[in-house]
Amino acid sequence: MRQGISLRQVAPNAVTAMALCFGLTGVRYGVSGEWERAVACVILAGVLDGLDGRIARMLRGESRFGAELDSLSDSIAFGVAPALLIYLWSLQALPKIGWIIALMHALMCALRLARFNAAIDADEQPHKSAGFLTGVPAPAGAGLVFVPLYCWFVTGEPIFREWYVVAPWTALVAFLMISNVATYSWSALRLRKNIRLEVIAMAGLLAALLMTVPWITLLGVSLLYIAMVPFGIMSYARVRNARMVTGETA
């Protein structure tokens, strides 16, 4: 039997490799103090991470190799790279403890990915079966940990770079990644038929805003995501209660 991966599996895995390289390139820009380019590289890695799985399903190129490569890429691009950037940008002003906080982000990201991989073949996955995720996904966690950077880009205020602002926020995002909190996934979102055109228009406007005022847009998207977390918890609670009632009735 021929060894290796098929041709249709090359495209999604190549996109995954690109995401990994963008994440590490962000570290390179962070070392030289080019913070906007550094953050942009990690955000681009997140965009590519959202594409590779869809490309794989479209080409029917899913594979165990691709799943393993995706997890390794996510751990580096959304765990290691943001942790190093946040440390170089702010947390190094807090000796020892600052490095521990940065390590917390990278470690929690790796643990979240390990938990996700371990549960792939599990028979019972309450969150997934209801269309929700368990905890904040790694790409979203990377985007959220940069919120102080977005604020600094937009306002130029030095307070957003202070360790006493960045450290608690980084720890909170790390906790959300490893938590059992139910968060929305794409499959959990249901659109009414009468607003689908409006949603498409909003997506186009969002793309335009990202090109013209990227940091304000990313800050707004991040705050909206955080605001949706309590609604995700309440939505999953309703689904779980409905299942319990249905089970009791049956």
Rank of each mutant, 00 (worst) to 15 (best):
V239I: 14
E157K: 08
G98T: 01
L209K: 00
I101L: 11
A106G: 14
S235K: 10
S90C: 09
S129Q: 13
E157A: 14
K193T: 08
T183M: 06
M108S: 08
I55W: 08
G46Q: 04
N117S: 06
M234G: 06
L24H: 04
W215P: 07
I5Q: 06
L48D: 00
V166S: 01
S222C: 09
P12S: 09
L210A: 07
R161I: 02
F116T: 03
G66C: 03
G141V: 02
S6F: 12
M211Q: 12
A174D: 07
R192P: 02
P139L: 02
L223F: 13
I100F: 14
G135V: 10
A114H: 12
S235I: 03
A93W: 07
P230N: 07
L224H: 11
I76P: 00
L69H: 02
Y150A: 00
Y164G: 00
H105L: 15
R8W: 13
G53F: 11
F132T: 07
L189T: 03
A119R: 14
L218V: 05
M228Y: 10
D123R: 12
V136N: 07
L223P: 01
V154G: 04
E157T: 11
H105I: 13
V27D: 05
T183R: 04
L209M: 12
M58E: 09
T134K: 15
N241W: 11
F132H: 02
P126S: 08
V47N: 00
A45S: 14
A122P: 00
I86W: 05
M108L: 14
A45I: 02
R60P: 00
R190C: 07
R243I: 06
R37M: 11
L84R: 03
R115M: 10
W169I: 02
S222L: 06
F146S: 07
L51M: 15
M58H: 15
M244N: 10
R64K: 11
A119N: 13
L144E: 04
A138Q: 06
K96G: 01
M1W: 08
G98A: 04
I226T: 05
A11G: 04
Y150N: 00
G79D: 09
F146I: 10
C151A: 15
A19P: 01
P158T: 12
L72S: 01
L189A: 03
I100E: 01
F132Y: 15
V154E: 06
S63D: 12
G232R: 04
G26D: 05
L44M: 14
